[in-house]
Amino acid sequence: MIGRMLRLFWRQMNVQLQIRTFNLYTLLLLFVQPFVFSAVGMVLSQVAGNQKPDLVYTVIGGGILGMWSGLVFSSTFDIGRDRRDGTLEFIIGSPTPYSVVEAVRTLTNVLTGLVSLLAAFLVAVLVFDYTLDQVQVLPALVSLLLIVAGMWAIGVFLANFLVWSRLSGSIVEFFEFPVAVVCGFMYPIRILPEWMQAISAVFPIRWALEGLQAALYGVSDMNFYAGRWGMALALGLLFWLTAHWMERKVHDLIRVSGEMSSI
């Protein structure tokens, strides 16, 4: 079973990379867009009167935003393409449950998005002399893992809407920036009004991201991390279980409506 999943993951990764290689849209998504986000962050930081921009929130925040945007756009693009090209019917009509295919594909997209974060991190180190001395490595890695898991869980949740209706693509894309705003990708979440913080509390990314930001600042209090990791894990699990429950419903709904072949 594990061998089968790994093979499917490898094959899906292969398909995704071949479809995306030399695709200008992908280059824009992975490299140019995070760079623009980071630049905007630095300008805003300067306007706010900071002598030196906060690199954790500007450059690395831009990388996280790039990951998130990449996930939203890739998922919308992939399912839209499958519907348009007629491959969605053949994937759903295969014996492999579509939830498995989508889980693997979303993971591929999230992991591909790490390239954005890595690029942003390299820019911070190489261009802006960001030092790694204060970084808490283990909490940073665990938090990053939970960011990946959280984005993946939200991704498979959103994929259900994209499969259910061809019209839902624009609605899913609409959520790109609101989620980024309420989750504090590029600024400390405490500066947001309380009602916005309350909204962000339902997203596992927000909690894992707080962990990553703290680890990059060198916070060593494990109790701080435990609470946030616990929330990220629990909410990620909730998103995944909801997605799993929805998948069965959506599978039946599209077989009633014939929506999987509509273009």
């Binding site: 094959r11 292969n14 479809i19 090209d85 007629g86 019917e89 295969s94």
Partner: peptide, 25 residues
């Protein structure tokens, strides 16, 4: 199903078959 839809155009014929072979277990 008839027509040109249903395959990944940017993939080779062989890679299309490898992908669907995986989906068919």
């Amino acid at each position: 199903f008839g027509g040109a839809r249903g395959l990944y155009g940017r993939l080779s014929g062989h890679d299309n078959l490898r992908y669907f072979a995986e989906l068919y277990g």
